[in-house]
Nucleic acid binder design. Sequence first.
DNA 1: CGCCGATTTGACGCCCCTCAACGGTCGTGG
DNA 2: CCACGACCGTTGAGGGGCGTCAAATCGGCG
Lengths: 256, 256
Amino acid sequence: MDTRPRPPSSAEPTGSARHAAAGSPKRAQHGGCEGCLARPLAICASIPAAETHALEAVAGEVLLPVGATLASQGDPRREVYTITRGMLRRVRLLPDGRRLVAGFLMVGDFIGFSGAPHYRHTLEAVTDCVLCAFPLQSMRSLCQRYPDLESGMLAQACSELDATRGSLMMLARLGPGERLAGFLVELGERQQQRGGAAHHVDLPMTRADIADHLGLTIETVSRSFTKLRQSGAIAFEDPRRIDLVDVAALRSAAGL
Amino acid sequence: MDTRPRPPSSAEPTGSARHAAAGSPKRAQHGGCEGCLARPLAICASIPAAETHALEAVAGEVLLPVGATLASQGDPRREVYTITRGMLRRVRLLPDGRRLVAGFLMVGDFIGFSGAPHYRHTLEAVTDCVLCAFPLQSMRSLCQRYPDLESGMLAQACSELDATRGSLMMLARLGPGERLAGFLVELGERQQQRGGAAHHVDLPMTRADIADHLGLTIETVSRSFTKLRQSGAIAFEDPRRIDLVDVAALRSAAGL
DNA sequence: CGCCGATTTGACGCCCCTCAACGGTCGTGG
DNA sequence: CCACGACCGTTGAGGGGCGTCAAATCGGCG
């Protein structure tokens, strides 16, 4: 009765990569919190440096090659994760193939804020990733032992809620160009927090990922890119590497 | 450059109600947790019944008449709330008047999951409301004293995150009829948890509120209602009181 | 009864989705 | 080395759905 989907939707069916067939997750031993680049960004920082052994004792390391899936929609939730390297996407699929990318997850982000016993999203690696894995049960006991950890998680969950509510406005009331502007600004800020250059955004994800994140089609995303470029707000030669020329204009377009 | 808004947007400019000019919030003394209808639904339940005096000691009661605003976008956040009676809407306004209703808040819901120091939304009473107010600072100390309270809040924040992510899919990829179907089902379930009749939904909010919640216009919402009615999925005479005739159809339309 | 707001319905137009084609890059294999 | 295919991104043409504008109906309240 309503919006019709496109036949088989867009991106790959989880396991049909280029040639080597998108490897699967591999387990490894935890490398230690000391030199961890993600630690200052992650909830792990809620535990004092002197006590990281408690984390290391229960943590495992997961290596996730590009295109691999960490967990699938419907799987039981047994672990939570902190991202140490790389980028993931959080994908939800409708039975008819319509696809939503509910978010992109970057270094320091926490995976596991959910009350559901099963995953409501599939988690796929946009780039090669490394994650710290914690059994759900261990995380619960750690929270009891270190109340600051639980406060930290609550705070983090609240900011994620803030961010998600921001996306609501974007999807409900902004036009394509405005959505894209907001997306670029936000991604740029997150990359800057992680040591990226200001006024520069790297886009490891495809246009299809962006489209499914913004509730648009690939074509409309592409057209919006060229319009933003023509307007002088952004510049790029490599479509995966964007210059934010006029951040103020981008921000105001996105209602920020 | 993009979607153009309608001149002055839809609903009232916060204070121009029917005739009596939408009263303002009134303070009262807290009535006690014992007979509180919201308690079993709210995070307050994380504190044992024998200890409710700790809550009562710091709580205040707020009476909010229809149309009144509890807090405005940009105000500093000083308190958090639990809803005891009535319904509120969480509204965000863009400078040009575009409006989003980020959610409807009902009895037992908690207001205050945010990391921001200022409100990012305006909170307006859809019906007459009663709320329990807790100073932010008191809530923090309560969390230290009662770790279960903090766990409860984390759990609640996680379910809200789940719900908000569900809205993302709705806004990004569902058509008008599907969005409305999902909205009705979800609201029906929440009302049922609160003692409402199954297969019946009360809509205290206007079509404009629904439209701004679903990212549509009033007219499209209205047309979607009549289409759902013609399809036999719902029935109604009073537009504010909807019969859910075929819940299965509604659920599957919404991708649930 | 008259006014006002809420809801519904109709006519029309624009924006975005759909369908299609093209160019560029990369990796493979002849 | 170059031909080839796969994937990605871009651009153009066309159609449909939802927003826009307009008007009618209904109910509540003064």
